[in-house]
């Protein structure tokens, strides 16, 4: 696992009364900033995707509402409320015209934000985002598989080391150990519960109608072997977003920023300049 050095966390008070945990990492100095919106797995100071991005950029990663405490979602009922929440997060962080990178669920959030508030986002990078739906090529039901099947869904090679580690890790969870329940199971289920509120039962909540509003030049990076959101969706996003381009990463799956960090960085460097 890559280590992230110099990672810090702080809590930011929002006008809604909510407190947003923000994790920051990166080389500092004049290096440009990117905002990273995480997937259903959450974000922490040990996050591998954060570490990857922080090799090249200063990364600001706000934790999605509900991931720390589900009660944070009591006034956030749908993707519109969620977009308003992120507008307030960006305002509180002084982010206007930001470069925003979203992975998976975070990709949907980033796209919704950019469609609801086009001026908030100057450059948009979507890594295997959810948010669209095609009957002929359904997005896999990530919340309707056994935990032991999750690894096979997330990684490009279902028998590779990443998938194996995830499978073995989840198979051996001891739910009778209070420490494991508190430190592993509850945060994981809480994050999934929060993401599920906006993805259930089908992760398309009108984004197809709104993608036309995205003003930011957009880069879509997709794993060719994405088993969760099939690579065919790259084309759908590209066609619906006014200024979009696609980079397919051979061999990678849904965890492409972990599986193919160098390729993701290279694609983003070319795009962000």
């Amino acid at each position: 696992m890559a280590t992230v050095t110099g990672t810090t966390s702080r809590d930011v008070q929002l006008p809604s009364g909510l407190i947003c945990r923000v994790i920051e990492a990166g080389p500092g100095g004049d290096v440009p900033t990117v905002v990273y919106l995480h997937g259903a797995g959450g974000v922490s100071e040990q996050d591998e995707i954060l570490a990857t991005l922080a090799r090249r950029w200063n990364v600001v990663a706000p934790m999605a509402p509900g991931f720390r405490d589900l009660s944070e979602l009591s006034e956030i009922d749908d993707v519109h409320d969620l977009a308003i929440h992120y507008d307030e997060v960006f305002e509180a962080l002084g982010l206007d015209g930001a470069c925003v990178v979203g992975h998976s669920f975070g990709g949907m959030v980033a796209a919704e934000l950019a469609a609801h508030y086009p001026s908030r986002v100057a450059r948009l990078v979507l890594l295997g985002p959810v948010g669209l739906w095609d009957d002929d090529e359904p997005v896999a039901d990530v919340f309707g598989v056994g935990v032991t099947e999750l690894g096979g869904l997330m990684w490009g090679d279902p028998e590779g080391p990443g998938a194996r580690a995830m499978r073995e890790g989840l198979e051996t969870i001891d739910v009778s150990d209070p420490k494991v329940v508190d430190e592993l199971l509850i945060p994981m289920m809480q994050g999934f519960s929060a993401a599920a509120k906006f993805m259930w039962p089908i992760p398309e909540k009108g984004l197809a109608k709104r993608l036309r509003r995205i003003a930011a030049p957009t880069l879509l990076v997709w794993g060719a072997n994405d088993r969760l959101v099939p690579v065919g969706y790259a084309d759908r996003f590209e066609r619906a977003i006014p200024d979009a381009r696609v980079r397919i990463v051979p061999g990678a799956g849904h965890m492409l920023p972990v599986e193919a960090g160098d390729e993701v960085i290279a694609a983003m460097e070319g795009f962000l300049g």
Binding site: D141, F143, G144, G146, T148, M189, F192, A196, W200
Partner: peptide, 8 residues
């Protein structure tokens, strides 16, 4: 098992 414990 995949249908036994939906998150939330």
């Amino acid at each position: 098992p995949g249908f036994s414990n939906p998150p939330g």
